[in-house]
Design a protein around this nucleic acid. Structure first.
Lengths: 353, 353
DNA sequence: TGTTAGCACTCGATGGTGTTGAGTGCTAAC
DNA sequence: GTTAGCACTCAACACCATCGAGTGCTAACA
């Protein structure tokens, strides 16, 4: 079956309507509200087709249709109209971002507050990665002839550790010493920004004989160091979600809000979008496209924020799948612009935080 | 009517029962569970008395009784048994507070996490006041002959301002200059810890003629400066509240969680207890004893935490009025002990944050 | 061949009704 | 002062009829 122009029109009308009403959309109301010169019966036929194609779903036999995840995806990718912000809205953004604070942490919270205010959805924001975190020490403890424990300590006392097993190997104190020296001289004192995969080569050189074996160790360190300041993520207006009828079931709410309280979870939500985010583009994840089942009834829109050309972090908003995508996208675009301007002024003469 | 020993026993039994079941307590179940050698009818009579005295309330005619705020207060002040922590629980506290972090901010979050874990209630914690905040500048703007605007700016860009009106006064540029100079030379550069009421005298000397008039100005500055870093308060496990049946109404939940999301609100909740907290004692606020109506169905227990003899901040837990007071009190006491030990080690050789 | 009117059918939502059971207050007897 | 007994109250629950929005299907129409 083909998705012709009329089907697309109907699809758009259904999603638009559902976004505003949160009620299953019937054929009659579509025929009435969006005069397309066809009767409800015709629309009914088309809707049956759209359901068969997977764009729509029916909560129960005698109800209207609601968009499926696939339907939302279609809408977001090619149906929705660009949202034109009103002068009022733009003024609101501007005024929400006018504040007299220059401590980075507070600024970030204010930005998140502004985003929640304007979008009316829950906002997550990662704080700019502090470039003061550096590796202080790497400890290696020999457990037995085939296992060792690796501990990474930073100046802030953060510790990540992991046990490694090398089944075929015969580890001994001498090797551990060698490895320890190599790792410490390669990494200690480096800030997060300075560490990259080049270090791998350096160490491989120093330990050429065992290069293959230590690769996972190095990867662990790189991986962990890169995420050392994971915890710096902030959620604003988590309860904004409670204003939407889809979250009227207390058990669900508990699960969802509980999920959002955990910074580890948030990190993985935002990290998921890293690739797209790197292109400085907005990223939209709808319903079951999310990896975490707790978010299967949510959509998430993420966007980078930066100062000048330097990407500092990610802003994400989370709301019901039925969210006003067009408006949020427009808002985030607009907000990013102002935020960039603000941060540019502050960030480059004030890197205290 | 007198509150004799038997009434107290019954009262205690009712509160104990209600705390565990969250169901209105009937005379029969009291007679059964707590063998006191009297029949349910007698208890019924006593309960009627207790209700008349205001210690109990009845949700509706044919239901059992629940404690009123006054009843809880009686229970907390003189009825409840001391809770003896099990070895297991103490072990859990110890292990929850074992972590390898020495950045103050993270430690605070971990402590809050531990408290929520152990008490199963929502935790609020104020971060230690940073002693790096100092007054950068005080601006005074003459509005008209009887009004001036005062602006306090700190190194972190925080700003507090207020308009003052002196109806009888004839303000002019000269006076404003004098005042501005006096205030700036008295306060600029001082960190929060260094500012105290002594400064008042200093300024009064400089402006002896107008001492009386500027008193409110000085008070405003002292007050505001003292609360400059208000925002550093952190909530953990807000959704823990959702696990208690008294918060099964979505509207209430929205209101309560919304309230807790606002740091300004939290500050006032914790500040309310300042006096008691200063004596380093636990403070319990029950139901309508709270000033904020949003907390009328909650009880709050606050306690200070310190490093050595230096009080650093306040921990508060918030839960239903029906909370397990005895257990929470015992837990907080215990936790404070360990926290003190931990912070003492860290705080005095590491005041970075 | 696509569109439309008409109609029977489905099913959640709503509201009224009867039953149940926990718990009370009152009275009279111990 | 205490207790047994009893009538009474009321939320909770299950049951049932009604209502209406919306559907799918069929037959007629352009």
């Amino acid at each position: 079956m083909e998705l012709d122009e009329r089907k697309r029109k109907i699809m758009q009308a259904i999603v638009d309507d559902y976004i505003t009403t949160a009620e299953p959309v019937g054929s009659r109301s579509i025929a009435r509200k969006f005069e397309m010169g066809i009767s409800s019966a015709t629309i009914r036929n088309e809707m049956a087709d759209l359901e068969q194609m997977g764009y729509l779903a029916q909560p129960h036999t005698s109800a209207g249709r609601i968009p499926s995840d696939k339907g939302y995806r279609l809408y977001v990718d090619s149906l929705m109209n660009q949202y034109k912000m009103t002068v009022d809205e733009i003024a609101r953004i501007k005024s929400a971002l006018e504040f007299n604070v220059n401590k980075m942490e507070n600024i970030i919270e204010r930005i998140a507050g502004a985003v929640s205010d304007i979008t009316q959805y829950t906002t997550m924001i990662t704080k700019p990665r502090s470039n003061k975190v550096y590796v202080k020490k790497i400890d290696i403890v020999l457990i037995d002839s085939s296992g060792l424990l690796l501990v990474v300590i930073t100046n802030e006392g953060l510790v990540k550790n992991q046990i490694f097993r090398f089944d075929a190997a015969k580890l001994n104190d001498e090797f551990v010493n060698k490895l320890s020296n190599a790792l410490n001289s390669a990494f200690v004192g480096l800030t997060l920004d300075e560490i990259d995969t080049d270090c791998l080569g350096q160490i491989a050189d120093a330990l050429s004989a065992d290069a293959q074996m230590i690769a996972p160790v190095i990867n662990f360190i790189l991986e962990k160091i890169y995420h050392l300041d994971d915890s710096d993520i902030y959620v604003n207006a988590a309860t904004a979600l409670l204003n939407y009828p889809e979250y009227s079931d207390l058990d669900r709410v508990r699960e969802l809000l509980g999920f959002l309280e955990n910074k580890y979870n948030l990190r993985s939500v935002i990290a998921e979008d890293d690739d797209n985010a790197k292109n400085n583009k907005l990223n939209i994840v709808i319903g079951r496209e999310n990896k975490c089942y707790q978010l299967h009834d949510c959509s998430i829109i993420t966007s980078n924020y930066s100062a000048g050309n330097k990407v500092l972090g990610t802003i994400g908003i989370i709301g019901p799948k039925r969210m006003n995508y067009a408006r949020v996208v427009a808002s985030l675009d607009n907000i990013s612009k102002y935020v960039n301007k603000i941060l540019q002024e502050i960030y480059f003469d004030n890197e205290r935080e």
